[in-house]
Amino acid sequence: MRGSFEVLEHTADIGLRLTGPDLAAILEQATVGLATIVGVWRPGDGEPRALSVHSEDPGALLVDWLDQVLYLHDAEGLALTGVEVAEALPDRAHGTVHVAPLGDGDIEGIQVKAITYHRLIVERTEHGWRAEVYLDV
């Protein structure tokens, strides 16, 4: 998978720092990062679910995308097994997230309540794109 994510942590804050060659890679890394924090990233086979968002700007696009990913886990009790973003423009994106039932047993992760706009950054750099987004936990 292209790009990378890093978990940002400071006292009560949890966030993600994302880098990638394009906006699609940012959304893919954000998906993996969120699922990792929540403890539901289980790479492998899974049922495909189409995701599509339309937003005002790249920052809102990242928040809206992650909101949909979080919903799949929290409302349907699913683990995430894969992600491909087919197209990501500054105001819209679509792709596929693969999911599988969580099964029995505890989840070793942090409960994420929502995605914030606090200190939200999504911007182009010399080498591609970078982003930072904070999660309410």
Binding site: A60, D67, D74, A114, I115, Y117
Partner: peptide, 17 residues
Amino acid sequence: RGIGHQSCQDALRTIDR
């Protein structure tokens, strides 16, 4: 629980726009 989390998220999205 999730009902409050999502209600706030939904409102922030609408009002941000």
